[in-house]
Design a protein around this nucleic acid. Structure first.
Length: 472
DNA sequence: TTTTGAGTTGTTCGA
DNA sequence: GTCGAACAACTCAAA
């Protein structure tokens, strides 16, 4: 009797531990053939691409330790899987599920194709704490408000148990296959920029686990109050690791739950992981979230069209320090602190009155953690058009936000060095300096740092009027 | 079916 | 400086 070979198709689950598909598959076959496909039909941003390349490299290295490797392909997923099962005597093809419209359609199609070919095909949850269809409110539909969603989800999770370590060793396929494989390298434009981003991160499963461990040990006990401070590193920075599945959300949930940290900080952090699930709950039940406002009245919102101010926003040249610092952090690291994401989002959609899609696209391209669900839900939330969105009058004042969450100006100075010259008092609003002040500190407003491209108070009023115009 | 209370992350104004 | 009210009306979730 010939040995059974099963394919595990890696997608956003680039890890060997806590990987349900891998674990189940290894129990049903004699060896696992681990594959990755660069699917040309799936949209991916630039920053994500460079993280992905590195992450695949790390995964391949882990497989090398087990005397196997990652079998990489490029092209149409269905076609490639078809070629693999024709070429090798494959009995199973397993993977972990995704939740956006395009992936769901593709995966369903591939699954029925496999079943027609008499291949065992099974899919699992390796990406979310709880999958959208398992959380319903009492009237049987999906939750549109976070708090009750999380309450329900949390109750479900308390009953789940996660094993400490996978009990059985997985045997990976080691031989050559007669198919055209693709190299691990991706063609990445703007290599210099991308390398700068990469220099800030340790990528891969091992690094993700270490990061979680250190976060729980050193930072979690200050998370509740610290999480809003971009000037100090208080957050876990696990977002990209979670996005690529280098660590499972269940592992994060369970390790944080089991830590001996005060309950309040723990709850705050867990609920942030809950937001990730909530975004996917919205994306799954309302796939149009990436394009259309959840509140349909926003279809007639009077967005402006102004390519110049979009450029200034992207480049971090708006003249508002906390906004510019955030955009520079994004360009430097491929990542931005969550509090600052809200501030730059509010500035774009409310002060500049530009459509949230502008921001969503830019974030999708430049964030290493760019994630369809979280990105769309986040932008809809900040622009006011989302489910459970902020009330129309909640327009962030970037000066106040700066003073509150970056009180010494350390964050803005880090990304805008010219602000080192001026005292804390002006660091979040340099335009308030008089000519004498500027002389005193040898700071030339308009030259050392741009004047604000809009008047904050005027544009606030303009945004309020715009909201009023759609609220009949 | 109807009713009731609540809803992520804010700001401004005036006492 | 501090504090509470006002800022719309609407939708959601649960009793």
């Amino acid at each position: 009797m010939s040995k059974k070979i099963g394919v595990h198709w890696f997608r956003l689950d680039l890890r060997l531990n806590d990987n349900p598909s891998l674990e189940k598959l290894s129990k049903e076959v004699d060896s696992v053939l681990p594959i990755y496909i660069f699917d040309e039909n799936i949209k991916i941003g630039q920053a994500s691409k460079c993280w992905l390349e590195k992450s695949l490299e790390k995964l391949n290295a882990e497989l090398n330790k087990l005397e196997s490797k990652l079998y990489v392909f490029k092209g149409d997923s269905k076609k490639i899987i078809g070629e693999i099962i024709n070429n090798k005597n494959i009995s199973h093809v397993f993977w972990n599920r995704l939740y956006d419209k395009k992936s769901i359609k593709r995966d369903k199609d591939i699954k029925s194709f496999l079943i027609n070919k008499s291949i065992v095909s099974n899919t699992f949850n390796g990406y979310l704490l709880t999958e959208p269809w398992n959380i319903k409110n009492k009237s049987g539909s999906f939750f549109k408000v976070f708090t009750p969603f999380w309450k329900t989800n949390f109750e479900l999770l308390k009953e789940k148990k996660l094993k400490k370590k996978s009990s059985s060793k997985i045997l990976f396929y080691k031989k050559k296959i007669n198919l055209k494989e693709h190299s691990l390298k991706i063609n990445i434009p703007r290599k210099k920029w991308m390398n700068k981003i990469l220099s800030h991160w340790d990528i891969g499963e091992q690094s993700a686990q270490l990061r979680l461990k250190n976060f729980i040990k050193n930072k979690l006990n200050n998370y509740g109050s610290g999480r809003d401070r971009p000037d100090i590193e208080f957050t876990s920075r696990l977002s990209a690791h979670l996005h690529f599945g280098e660590i499972s959300p269940m592992r994060v949930f369970s390790d944080v739950m089991n830590s001996k940290i005060d309950g309040d900080n723990k709850q705050k952090y867990l609920s942030e992981i809950g937001w990730r699930d909530f975004s996917y709950n919205l994306l799954f039940n309302y796939p149009e979230i990436t394009e259309l406002p959840i509140q349909s009245k926003f279809l007639k919102f009077p967005w402006l069209k102004d390519s110049n101010s979009i450029k200034q926003w992207k480049a971090g040249k708006t003249g508002v320090p906390i906004v510019d610092a955030g955009m520079k952090e994004l360009y430097e690291m491929g990542w931005m602190h969550n509090r600052v994401r809200m501030i730059v989002g509010s500035f774009l959609t409310k002060n500049l009155l530009l459509h949230w899609k502008n921001g969503e696209n830019w974030f999708f391209d430049t964030l290493v953690d760019a994630d369809i669900g979280s990105n769309a839900a986040g932008w809809q939330w900040i622009s006011g058009s989302g489910a459970d969105a902020s009330p129309y009058f909640r327009i962030f004042n970037p000066i106040l936000q700066g003073k509150k969450f970056d009180p010494k100006g350390d964050y803005v100075r880090k990304y805008i060095p010219s602000l080192n010259k001026i005292p804390d008092k002006f660091v979040h609003s340099p335009w308030e300096m008089s000519v004498d002040d500027q002389k005193k500190y040898n700071f030339n407003l308009g030259k050392d740092y741009p004047l604000p491209i809009v008047d904050l108070s005027e544009t606030r009023k303009r945004a309020l009027a715009a909201f009023k115009s759609i609220s009949e």
